[in-house]
Amino acid sequence: MNALERHINGLFGDTRVLSARLEKGFIRVPTAELQDTDDAIHLKLELLGLETKDLDIQVTQDAVHISGERKSQTQTENNGTTKSEFYYGKFKRVIPLSARIQNTNVTADYKDGILNLTLPKTEQEKNKVVKLNLEQPAA
């Protein structure tokens, strides 16, 4: 499991995924998708079954911190048993960003368990151009 977690973290650069060990496994953290455009970074998080009141999202200029809790709603009747593959409990995830953003201008849309964040880049990041000199020095 640790090797898989390290591999997943590697896909997102230095993403730090915090998982708490349970009796029978791990608490899963939300899956994420990042799209980097000229003007903004678009982050999509899968938060199925969570209400906004159960989420805490903090955005700095270089990372998105998300934590929350998925609460069990399963009720077992008299002498009944329930088997579930759903996961419940608290989670925390930090997603580092590839560019500095204007964290005061972030927009969010949460619909059908999918959180979409638009993280506008700072003007310095938008205008960052590096000119390479390919000429050979005179000998």
Rank of each mutant, 00 (worst) to 15 (best):
A139R: 01
E51H: 06
T118E: 12
K131Q: 13
R21T: 07
Q73L: 10
S19E: 08
L22K: 06
H7A: 15
I27M: 03
A32L: 09
A32W: 02
L22T: 08
A139S: 07
H42I: 14
N105E: 06
K44M: 14
N9C: 15
K44D: 06
F91W: 08
D112N: 14
N133G: 02
K121V: 11
P96K: 00
T122W: 02
V64A: 04
L34M: 11
Q124V: 13
I95Y: 12
Q35H: 11
T60S: 14
D39K: 12
Q102W: 04
T76K: 03
I8F: 04
S67F: 00
P120K: 00
K53M: 14
G10A: 12
N78R: 10
E46V: 12
E51T: 09
T60K: 05
Q136S: 10
G25R: 12
G80R: 10
P96G: 04
V106Q: 00
E33Y: 06
V129S: 05
V106K: 01
K121S: 03
E77P: 15
E5Y: 07
K90L: 11
Q61W: 02
K126H: 02
G80C: 08
A3D: 06
L134N: 13
E135A: 14
T74R: 04
L97I: 05
Q35V: 14
L18C: 06
A139Y: 05
N79E: 05
T122H: 07
E135G: 15
L134T: 07
E46A: 11
L117P: 10
K126W: 09
T76Y: 03
F12Y: 09
A63E: 12
G89Y: 01
